[in-house]
């Protein structure tokens, strides 16, 4: 088990280095001068620009820049942005809301996706199943921002059940609608995955054998069908944590939430390269970390690969 964990950790390192290098290069190796752009139309005085370049190591060769950035990542000191704010503080301010939002969305998609998926799978070919498949396709087909607007209008404005936008200090109630919107697409995928998995397991030999040894239908469903069907679903959910957090950029925009998405979008518009790279790096770390977690969960759920 320990070796398995160790090996997976070792595999993660090159991926982390490669991904951050790629992002860093995309942001800093682009045509045009990030510093010159700061001055807007008039441009900055050359002396000021030089000073900024020196402060941000932009005068050094690219790989040195990247290594210095990596050192920052490891020591959790990302430096200051062009406006003089500590980037690590910006990150610390942005993440809590987004994490809360992503976790709420995760719970919603897990509960409803698995629940409906299980019922649809057990009633394959029946009305519930057909409806679930069509509805889930709709959730996948309609873009998140459209779902967001429609919910704002219907639930927020017309019905007045939930607040339309989220204020400075969001609570669970005000985050509920954004979480629903964020969860919509993944919910559809979880539902379909659970359904497929349940259908497959229902016809598995060991399910038949379990019934042959006298287990009732509900015992077989709970202990064998559901338990085995959850393996791929949990894998999907784990990997989805990372996707939800970066996907929040749209949801946060619609509902005016000051989370990672809002901050990142703001930084992109303002050309705050350091903030952009730092935020995306943290997101990538979350993504990689979530995938690592999935591997461990997988090992816990499926004894076959435990010591592989």
């Amino acid at each position: 088990m320990l070796w398995y964990l160790g090996r997976r950790l070792l595999q993660v390192i090159p991926v982390f280095l490669g991904a951050t290098l790629l992002l860093y290069a995309l942001v800093f190796l682009r045509p045009g001068d990030p510093v010159a752009a700061l001055g807007g139309e008039r441009g900055l005085p050359e002396a000021v620009a030089e000073q900024i370049r020196a402060d941000y190591n932009l005068d050094k060769p690219f790989f040195v820049q990247y290594l210095l950035f990596l050192r920052g990542v490891v020591t959790l000191d990302f430096g200051v942005d062009f406006r003089g704010r500590e980037v690590s503080e910006v990150i610390a301010n942005a993440f809590p809301v987004t994490i809360q939002l992503a976790l709420m969305a995760l719970i919603i998609e897990a509960v409803f996706g698995v629940g409906f998926g299980l019922i649809a799978g057990m009633r394959k070919g029946k009305l519930f199943d057909a409806t679930a498949l069509v509805v889930s396709l709709l959730f996948i087909a309609v873009p998140t921002f459209v779902v967001g607007f429609v919910m704002q209008i219907v639930i927020g404005v017309n019905l007045g059940w939930l607040p339309v936008t989220v204020g400075r200090d969001p609570d669970v109630i005000s985050l509920l609608m954004p979480a629903l919107v964020l969860a919509a697409v993944s919910f559809a995928y979880v539902l379909r995955l659970t359904r497929t998995s349940v259908v497959e397991n229902l016809s598995a030999d060991y399910v038949r054998t379990a019934r042959a040894r006298g287990l009732s239908r509900s015992q077989v469903t709970g202990r064998h069908v559901l338990r085995n069907s959850l393996i791929p679903v949990v894998t999907f959910l784990g990997a989805d944590i990372g996707a939800l957090m970066s996907g929040a950029i749209i949801t946060e925009g619609i509902f005016n939430i000051n989370g990672v998405g809002g901050t990142l979008y703001d930084a992109i518009i303002r050309g705050e390269s350091i903030t952009v790279v730092s935020l995306t790096t943290v997101l990538v770390m979350v993504y990689i970390g979530a995938n690592l977690l999935v591997d461990l969960l997988y090992a816990a759920l499926d004894p076959r690969i435990r010591y592989a």
């Binding site: 006298g214 085995n228 499926d302």
Partner: peptide, 21 residues
């Protein structure tokens, strides 16, 4: 009746035991 009065030994031992239990 199943299990108690009529038992079954299935064909393929590889697929007839649930791998996760």
């Amino acid at each position: 009746l199943r299990g108690r009065a009529i038992g079954l030994v299935p064909q393929d031992p590889m697929s007839n035991l649930n791998p996760v239990w």
